[in-house]
Design a protein around this nucleic acid. Structure first.
Lengths: 224, 224
DNA sequence: CCAAAAGTGTTAGGAGTACACCCATGT
DNA sequence: ACATGGGTGTACTCCTAACACTTTTGG
């Protein structure tokens, strides 16, 4: 019985949602596309293993990483022997270039819209599907979209991030009002460079919100 | 490295939320209270292992069971050797008596309000805390409360279930309207026995809702 | 008839939605 | 001056929340 971690690393590139994939350098599935990941070392925590793999692949520390699901239903999902895989998903800002890890021949970003064109190793298509569902479900009530952006961003960039993930357009006025009234962002009194119009104000995420889960009260009003 | 499953089994007894605990029959933590669970067999899926343990403990099949979280951060959480535990939670109707499993000396229901009075083996207090958070978070947008009730129930019983889990009282009229308008229940044209007043109509859960996740659209309106 | 619990109706306030309008900058 | 994207304000609708009121049973 082996225990491994697999990573679904999301980022936004040119207004589209991307996932980090590798080309497998070893058997099985050599040459196939797959999620980055690897075995959990003895005397290593499972999240620690995920963070280690994440850093190997992207060089990033201290980014958003959350346990997704543990896959181990079919004892034969890995042809070699029984492998139970703990999947994590991560949200990163698109600044760092991916590096190929130990057993990966290559690492690259792929838009989720193009996932259907390729075949993935193991049950990694299922893992990605689960990650997308989680991301889509979580973004509507938890303030995590900013994790995909640089530390300072424009409200339009934040709006486009939501639109990309939700797959629908949002109203500008309502979105701006929402995000300000909830205090999710704080202005940094700087302007972005103009892109053909009035330059946008830059904002930073309001860290207070992360700790206090005051969105929960709003969230609960759904039924109660 | 060993892989095990732990179960947090909830039920409602006399308007209070209960968890199934066992008294450990073997070392380590012999005699301590703990969650039911056990090792995953070779050539067995992890959810299959959880369902096997659940049936050993309660005799129940085909009940609500959902993967909760995988705990394996601290390599020394089990003093014997490295154990990674996949926690599941289950919602059952209080009809079956718990049976003691293989390595359990005793099995019994304990109200969550009394959990603070006892000390649990391993990191099972952490697992229960996670399960309570999930249950509380999920009940407000997913139709799962009925899993804790018999197949036919009164609207007041359903309301009390929500109140028990949420820890606050709900408005009768608004709750009844909500649950009917959403089509979460269907009347079965029977009456419950009177308890000092007008007898209540019996309802059954509307299975259609379970499959179609139309509550999702309502859910998303939170931000979009 | 009265108490107790079931069940319905009414109304005020607030959140979500659509959309019109003004602002600042580059060309 | 005008095109382009940034940003604000307003009116309408629908849901939620609070609560009063009616109905059906047992004693």
């Amino acid at each position: 019985m082996r225990l491994s971690v697999d990573l679904v690393i999301f980022t936004i590139i040119k207004e589209s949602l991307n996932i980090l994939l590798i080309k497998r350098g070893g058997e099985p599935f050599k040459g196939s596309h797959a999620l980055p990941g690897g075995g959990v070392h003895e005397d290593e925590g499972i999240e620690a293993a995920a963070r280690r793999e994440l850093e190997e692949e992207t060089g990033l520390k201290n980014v958003f990483l959350e346990q997704l699901f543990t896959f181990g239903e079919d004892p034969k999902r890995d042809p070699r022997n029984r492998v139970v895989s703990i999947a994590y998903y991560s949200l990163v800002s698109h600044e760092t270039k991916p590096k190929a890890g130990d057993d990966a021949a290559d690492a690259f970003w792929l838009p989720v819209s193009e996932l259907s064109k390729i075949k993935l190793a193991f049950d990694h298509d299922q893992i990605i599907k689960t990650a997308l569902e989680r991301l889509l479900g979580k973004i509507v009530y938890a303030p995590i979209a900013h994790e995909l952006l640089p530390r300072e961003f424009t409200l339009t960039a934040l709006k486009k991030t939501y639109e990309t993930i939700l797959g629908k357009t949002l109203d500008k006025g309502n979105f701006f009002n929402y995000v300000k009234k909830r205090g999710l962002v704080v202005s940094v009194d700087k302007k972005a460079e103009s892109e053909g119009g009035r330059p946008a104000a830059l904002y930073r995420f309001n860290k207070r919100v992360k700790d206090i889960s005051d969105f929960m009260s709003h969230f609960r009003s759904a039924i109660c």
